[in-house]
Structures are given as structure tokens and as C-alpha cells.
Computed example of a mutant assay.
Amino acid sequence: MEKSIKKGFFFKPYEAPFLSPFEKLFGLFKELITHTSGDFDEAIDWLRQLDVEYKLTDASYTIDDFIEDLKKKGYIREEIKDDGTSGTGITAKTERAIRQQALDQIFGSLNKSGRGNHTTKYSSSGDELTGEFRAYAFGDALDSISITESLRNAQINNGVDQFALTENDLVVEDAQFKAQMSTILMIDISHSMILYGEDRITPAKKVAMALAELITTRYPKDTLDILVFGNDAWPIAIKDLPYLKVGPYHTNTVAGLQLAMDMLRRKRNTNKQIFMITDGKPSCVREKDGNYYMNSNGLDEYITEQC
């Protein structure tokens, strides 16, 4: 009697992947350094408090050992602060690690693919092959001709005894255009991003860092520019994202959009887009005389009509 083979799902208890003591603390450290806007001392103070409460370390590996490993691995360095005192700061290596962690958290479900660009529905003599063939047309590159398929057509059309290869037999492997994109990322750093004790700037930074890492790694031919806006708007570099802090600002969305449009006008790419990360309504606009008109109470039509 034949045995019936049953198919289905096999469940077993979850087994957490092995992480070294450094790796466990480093993941938490990257979260804390994002919340503290790059303030190493504050992040370590928080880490020590969490260690006391949750017993993250033991005698074999302490927080001090973790700090030494951060130095050895090039994640932190001694630096001179703005006030002239010496202190410890994070390095570019840590900044990249923070952006990568944000990418994994927010876009972690994306399937890995080769480095490329945004494909379009238009066929061309581009550099991404589709696997499909079409008849040769004047102007097609000679290296795009499929020799195997063209010879096959010649045999079918003319026979083996009177073999001849004509232009009608030639086929080329089709390709697609790869569109390039220019992106402007706007980030609101007005006071409302931390109003009423709600931390909105940290999630905003995470989204910004994830998007920046996604574009720079998956779409290297694209351009990405970042600006922040409060009472005014100004550009920042990708490396500045972990250090963003809110200020005593209102929300001048108009200034942000004007700067974003001005930056896009300088880009040669046909495809352009703006992403804006904000928590709410515009509340400020700059008048022609340089003064600011501000109103935080409700939606002010004088401001919104200029957006």
C-alpha cells in the first residue's frame, strides 16, 4: 500500500538569530543616536539607563567595552564641539549604518535587485533587455541584432539549400528606456514636530534617511537634494540627516516649495518629483518687505492660497 505524502506548513518555536554582545548593543545604539540627533553622550546615558533596567550587559561585556569597540571599529571619534570643548562624535561610517538601518526598517520588504533605474513602458535601444524580439529597423545598433534568431528566420524563409540572409530576416532583442529621476525631499523642522511631547521629528528623520539610502543605492543615476523648512527654507546634505533638530519655527511651506521648485529647474532630467515630510498645516509666509506673516490658529486662507 502506497504511503500518501501530505503537504503543509511546519511550525516550530522561533529561534532568534545569534548576535554578539556588540551587535545587540549596536542596533539599540543606532536607534538612540537617531533620537538624540547625533548626541553621543546623551545616547550613551540612555543606553546605560536601559542597561540598568533590562540587564543588557554583564561582567564579561560592559557598556565601557562597547564604547571601546565603537572606537576600534571606527564608529566614533574624538572631536572639538562648537563651544570649543572636546567630546565624542559619530563618524560617516555610523551615519551610513543609521541610514541602512532606516532603509531596512521602512523598506525591508523590497526584493533585492541589480543596480539600475526606473524602467518605462517605452521600448528603445536602451540598455535593459526585455527578452523579446522585434524586426530590425534602420538605425538599430548592429550589436543589438540577435544572430541566432536572425539565422533561424533565414532558414525558415529561404530554406537550407538556397540559404540567404536578408534584411527581412534580421531581428533585434528589444530593450527599454531607463528613466532618470530628480528628487527633492522637504523636511519640516518647525516646533510643532515635537509639540505636546509628541516626537514626530525622529520618524521623519527615519523616513528621510531610508528614502535617501534607497535612492542612492538602488538608483545611483538619480539625483537627490534635501531641504528643511521652518520660517525659511535651506538645503542640507544627506550626511546631516541624523543630526536634524526642530527649532522655534513656524511652518513656511511656501518657502520650502519655492526652493524645491528652484532646485528642480536646474536639473536636466525630464522626470522630477518632490516629497514633503510634515506634520500639518502651513502657518507662516514671508512678505515682500521681508517680514513674516504668522498664524498658528487654524487654516489661514492668506497663507494656504500661496501654497
Rank of each mutant, 00 (worst) to 15 (best):
E2M: 11
I5N: 11
K6N: 13
K7M: 13
F9M: 12
A16F: 14
F18C: 14
P21A: 09
P21H: 05
F22G: 03
K24N: 13
K24V: 08
F26G: 05
L28G: 05
K30W: 06
K30H: 10
S37G: 05
S37Q: 04
D39L: 04
D41N: 13
E42Y: 09
I44F: 03
V52G: 07
E53G: 08
Y54S: 15
T57N: 06
T57H: 08
D58R: 09
I67Q: 14
L70K: 01
R77N: 11
I80E: 15
K81G: 07
K81I: 05
D82A: 13
G84H: 07
S86E: 15
T88I: 14
T94E: 08
E95T: 11
E95P: 01
R96L: 15
A97T: 03
Q101Y: 09
A102T: 05
A102D: 05
D104P: 02
D104F: 06
D104Q: 13
D104G: 07
I106L: 12
G108A: 04
N111L: 12
S113E: 15
G114F: 05
G116L: 01
G116T: 03
H118P: 03
T119R: 08
T120F: 03
Y122L: 12
G126Y: 02
D127Y: 10
L129K: 06
F133I: 02
F133E: 01
R134E: 02
A135M: 10
A137G: 07
A137R: 11
A137D: 11
F138A: 04
D140V: 00
A141P: 00
S146R: 00
S146T: 00
T148I: 13
E149T: 09
E149G: 04
S150H: 07
L151A: 08
A154C: 09
Q155H: 14
N157G: 10
V160M: 13
D161W: 05
A164Y: 04
T166L: 11
E167S: 08
N168V: 09
L170P: 00
V171P: 00
A175H: 03
Q176C: 06
Q176P: 00
Q176W: 00
K178G: 04
K178E: 07
M181Y: 10
S182I: 04
T183K: 01
M186L: 15
I189K: 00
M193G: 01
M193F: 07
I194L: 13
L195H: 15
P203E: 08
K206L: 09
A212V: 09
E213D: 15
L214Y: 12
R218L: 07
Y219D: 07
Y219W: 08
Y219T: 10
P220N: 03
P220Q: 05
T223W: 00
F229C: 05
G230L: 02
N231I: 06
I236F: 05
L244H: 01
K245L: 12
V246R: 00
G247I: 04
P248A: 13
L257H: 01
Q258Y: 10
M261I: 13
D262E: 14
M263R: 09
R265P: 04
R265V: 08
R265W: 09
T270E: 12
I274T: 01
I274F: 00
F275M: 09
T278H: 07
N295D: 15
N297E: 15
D300A: 07
E301L: 14
Y302D: 11
E305K: 11
